[in-house]
């Protein structure tokens, strides 16, 4: 039995311990904001926060999550999250929207560590998140805007 917390709630899992966290979240816990995009940690659509840091849930066996805290887009909270989501809405970042949960998870983590990110910091945090609609320019802008919002 694997025990972990998901968005603050105690969860346990007794299926195949190799099951990636992504599928535990989606298939077993029915939280579908975290997306499948590649299954090999190339696209970032499955990004969650694991014990406070970004983690690609598609390459995270549930066995390695025992005792950990997992936060998904549905459980995101705090000043950075609010600022990021507000900034995203303000300039209409999403197009198809499918990758945006992962983008937002990465952006929030960036701002938690780097409240005033440079463009290089943004590249460093976000280059692992693919957006096939190429909303990158707005993602960059929204991160700067969120940073300004938090400061102001």
């Amino acid at each position: 039995m694997i025990n972990f917390t998901l968005n603050g709630e105690e969860k346990s899992f007794d299926g195949d311990p190799d099951t990636p966290l992504l599928w535990v979240i989606r298939d077993f816990e029915k939280l579908t904001g975290t997306k499948y995009g590649c299954g090999i940690a190339q696209c970032g659509a499955c990004t969650v926060h694991l014990d406070g840091s970004t983690r690609r849930s598609c390459v995270t066996p549930i066995s390695s999550v025992d005792g950990s805290e997992v936060t998904t887009i549905e459980g995101l909270a705090g000043a950075e999250a609010e600022a990021v989501q507000k900034a995203w809405v303000a300039i209409d970042v999403p197009q198809c929207g499918y990758c945006q949960s992962g983008q937002i998870m990465s952006a929030v983590a960036l701002l938690q560590y780097t409240p005033k990110p440079t463009d290089e910091d943004i590249d460093g945090a976000m280059a692992g998140n693919i957006c096939r609609c190429a909303t990158y320019q707005r993602i960059r802008q929204a991160i700067h805007d969120a940073s300004d919002m938090m400061e102001g």
Binding site: T32, G33, V93, P94, G97, Q100
Partner: peptide, 17 residues
Amino acid sequence: DTPEKTNGKAVYTLDVT
């Protein structure tokens, strides 16, 4: 469609269960 695409609530086919 922007708000639901920033909070994980937008439903795509893969999310239909």
